[in-house]
Design a protein around this nucleic acid. Sequence first.
DNA 1: CGCAAGCCCGAAAACGTTTTTGCATCGGCA
DNA 2: TGCCGATGCAAAAACGTTTTCGGGCTTGCG
Lengths: 349, 349
Amino acid sequence: MNIQELAAHLQLSVSTVSKAINGKSDVNAKTRQRVLDAAAQFGFSADAAARRLRTQTSDLIAFVLSAPQAHFAHPFFLNMLMGIDEKLEHSRYQLVVSSARSAEHEMQVLKRLVEVQKVDGVLFGRTLRQDPRIAYLLERKVPFVAFGRSETPGEFAYLDIDHTVVGREGCARCVTLGHRRIGLVNAPKSLMFSHHQRLGYEGALRAASIPFDETLYIEADMTEEGGLAAARQMLEANDPPTAIISGHDLVAVGIYRAITERGLVPGRDIAVIGGDDHPFGTLLSPALTTFSAETLKAGKRMSEMLLAQLDGTPVNELQEVWSPDFIPRSSDGSPRLSTEKRGRAAARR
Amino acid sequence: MNIQELAAHLQLSVSTVSKAINGKSDVNAKTRQRVLDAAAQFGFSADAAARRLRTQTSDLIAFVLSAPQAHFAHPFFLNMLMGIDEKLEHSRYQLVVSSARSAEHEMQVLKRLVEVQKVDGVLFGRTLRQDPRIAYLLERKVPFVAFGRSETPGEFAYLDIDHTVVGREGCARCVTLGHRRIGLVNAPKSLMFSHHQRLGYEGALRAASIPFDETLYIEADMTEEGGLAAARQMLEANDPPTAIISGHDLVAVGIYRAITERGLVPGRDIAVIGGDDHPFGTLLSPALTTFSAETLKAGKRMSEMLLAQLDGTPVNELQEVWSPDFIPRSSDGSPRLSTEKRGRAAARR
DNA sequence: CGCAAGCCCGAAAACGTTTTTGCATCGGCA
DNA sequence: TGCCGATGCAAAAACGTTTTCGGGCTTGCG
């Protein structure tokens, strides 16, 4: 069903029909209604390709998944995706998604999206301290909303979950419980939130007059394996930590394993704190103490912000930082064993 | 950069440039190379909207997430999505995704996708025994690949993971271990795989000469809550099961909880078998015995099948059924306690 | 009664491709 | 030498919209 056929059937011109449908002013209320009724009756809706060509807008919004961060075991991205789509549904935009295997690949994917698909807006996952995606989109003047802040020069819209909070409060919590040897298994330093997390951690240490110890700070992939390797390294050191913070639940799972394989028990012998609240955290034993990450809500909000931006809201009004909530469960605990005992326990293996 | 500007720069006509780029025959190899070089140099690629309009093909492939089944806690759909996108990346197609909140909503979403976006092909998640999506797509002659078979009349492409296997082998396993009271917490019967699972289960019971007991068969949502409620009901009955099969790991988690809250321990007092292998299954205690579900691979294969179909392969050559692998861990075990003892344990609560 | 001003509507151009058709040119063959 | 077929390129139409522009009709006012 064309707009032409529809017009012919209504004994009207195409232009009138078009204007009636698109809510233009110069069409009689009565004829407009007639058009609308007929359109509904025949199930007509304008061909997307044609209107895109004519209006020079794609009505497409891209969401790109950075696979290096998109761990299938974590509902992070799917949550965000569902949130995004929910808000987009009632708009005229359609969501397209692409996944990228690496940072370079992600730039390729992104360029294709804006240069050939000509998407009207872009959403993407965790930001880098220096983020080529941001630089590129800024330069091409493509509206976007980033998940996370960045040190990349320029003003842009973002929604961030403040990881200084998890570094600081996680560490402070451990201090309160009596820990002095507090490790941090952080994400790679190129990630913005990782930097924030470190800043928070260092601040809390300073507040407790505990010197920063580089054997207690390791950067690792945000995976179970990354956490495992990092925690092994920490635990094998001379003066191992009595508490380990990670800022990410999958990493925390790896830490659990490293602790367990030394014959120790997480949460009793060594405190563990995660982050980005994974639904399965309650099922671990002990249940994992963590910080919230409302990614579904974040996805919704990011959509809204992008829509607002496309409607003309200036980007400096579209910058939000959410503070994650501490979710105390059982894996944080006071230091129990002396180093000597821990040594023996390890020796038993 | 237009094709017109490119043509002007090359001192060629638009048509020649177009044909050079699209690999048509009537263009000299030398000029073609010249065009290709220039296109690469200027980073030209044909505007998607224009070519869509002209060719009457959208180069869009839709993946629709059925939210009623898309549990964020399970990496099922994200895995599938990543698999799909990986194969689509090297094709000319772009992936669009929409999520649906309910079955009716899903039909709306689907219609919009095919009627206004005019997608060239569709992929979607778990099938129903009578599936309106299939009927609709068949009628509109839109190429698609379903995840799962269906009793809906008509021939179509599908990739299925055979759940008769999990019903049958899960049940047979329990029989081997000495169980006679074997429960099944099944998915809603409208789902095709649920039906298969029941058939497999019933077959294994028959083979062991155990009569079907309707108090041991409950249908529930594929969520932790669904599993919890169903397992509670089973365990409160007069002659409760000594083993419960679910076919889905999230449901199994709910079953764990129901068992635990009666003061029993899963895997020792009551055997549990899951399905759709969730990565966190190994972290439960006891580690969850389950069946594999290679959804990443399934996503890739579904893409390939759809691409093949768009290239003309007849649908009856695009029908695959994969057999899931049994993944034995610790949650299946022989019946330990007598009913009497279990009764007492329950009474202690 | 005449004229200006709105109000509706239609004609036509434009968006950037692809594809059909047609037209040269050139080489080969009789 | 003359003709024919093949080859390489160009012109132009078409895809289905939106939007600008212009014009006819009604209406109100002088």
